[in-house]
Write a protein that binds this DNA or RNA. Structure first.
Lengths: 204, 204
DNA sequence: CAGAGTCCTGAATGAGCGTTCAGGATGGCC
DNA sequence: GGCCATCCTGAACGCTCATTCAGGACTCTG
């Protein structure tokens, strides 16, 4: 029995660390930052509270590390996802799908809400939030410019249109995250797409 | 000295209760729901922790009561504010100002963020959130219909336009609440108004 | 195979905080 | 004036955690 126990311990510390990180994201997702305890993370990761602190120094350290993991994955997923699409119209449409939670890139909007509130009080979270937002908006802006270049889009003001479409997505997604009965992924996509058509004066 | 102390106590309990409620809102505004302690509220209200519990039963009771106070005031302020404006265009413009934080009705968007996150985990907050949202959207919807009736607005889809304009306001306001360097009250107003012009096909 | 370093555990510690409570003051009522 | 209900205080209680720590096990190195 000593063996069976030890087969789990001291084995592949990097894997363990990563496991804990993902467990942290999971716990934050349904408990929120404020409700996440060290023991919750440990339990979700199938390990002991001590190990969480061993790897990350403190609860806050684990939360911060989870945040940066999230940021990196978001970046990679988004870049990969968009590359798979051909042409600005398809890419734009795909960003709508991502916003509706259909892809891995945006993930769960509840996490975004949590991040926003944490950003109100924690400088690290504030930076992560800004960085994530910047990347998302830059991607949107890139798609729009691509569309302008090839004649698919002709917005009156590309900058304003990009900001509005990004903000609209946030606002719609809030309702989705909060399970508002008036919102659904399909409706979000439809509403957002119509706004995009309007803003970008798309050529049919 | 016994007198000077007693002059503050046991005097106007309703006032005291209200004072505590307002103190609660203040504390939540800059500490957040998760960071608000009973002693913070007591200190901000210039009273003792015991009294907070005496009036509201528990910390959560105080937070909930503060939330309903907020909801009522929001409702009253919004109705009054809008009545002071003449015509749908003026009213719509005023709603933009309110969203930018210029009026008392919307108050502080940081509180809205906090409310959203609390709504993720607390049923009471969820209801308050939905109610506030409904009222705000109903007001917007009312203004839009008024504008349609008198020919100022002619949106392709009034429902969709209302939802989008409300959501856009939320999304823009998040950046304002988070002190995003790319956002300011003036920019929010301008961006939102342009969207309204576009969505509602306003007659100039 | 001995020793050292790394990884891991879970019980102990101690701080922070919600809540309780015993008691004091006030104001109204008879 | 005496009495009672209400209002109010702040010290004390007890619980919930984050964090510490002493020790055990594994892996690698020589």
């Amino acid at each position: 029995m000593g063996l069976s126990k030890s087969s789990l311990s001291a084995k592949a510390p990097e894997e363990r660390r990563d496991l804990i990180l993902r467990a942290t994201v999971t716990v934050v997702r349904d408990r929120g930052f404020a409700g996440t305890r060290v023991s919750d993370i440990a339990e979700a990761a199938g390990t002991s509270p001590g190990l969480v602190l061993y790897h990350f120094g403190s609860l806050n350290g684990a939360l911060d590390a989870a945040l940066t993991l999230l940021e990196d994955e978001f970046h990679d997923d988004l870049a990969r996802d968009l590359q798979e699409q051909v042409g600005p119209v398809e890419r734009l449409r795909h960003m709508g799908d991502l916003g509706a939670g259909l892809g891995p890139a945006v993930g769960d909007w509840r996490l975004w809400l949590e991040l926003w509130v944490r950003a109100l009080h924690d400088p690290g979270a504030r930076e992560t939030r800004e960085s994530l937002d910047r990347r998302w908006r830059a991607a949107l802006r890139g798609v729009i410019e691509e569309g302008i270049a090839c004649g698919d889009f002709s917005p009156a003001d590309a900058d304003a249109a990009a900001t509005r479409l990004a903000s609209l997505m946030d606002g719609l997604a809030i309702q989705l995250a909060l399970d508002d009965p008036d919102m659904s992924p399909e409706r979000l996509i439809a509403l957002w797409w119509e706004a995009a058509v309007l803003e970008l004066r798309m050529n049919p």
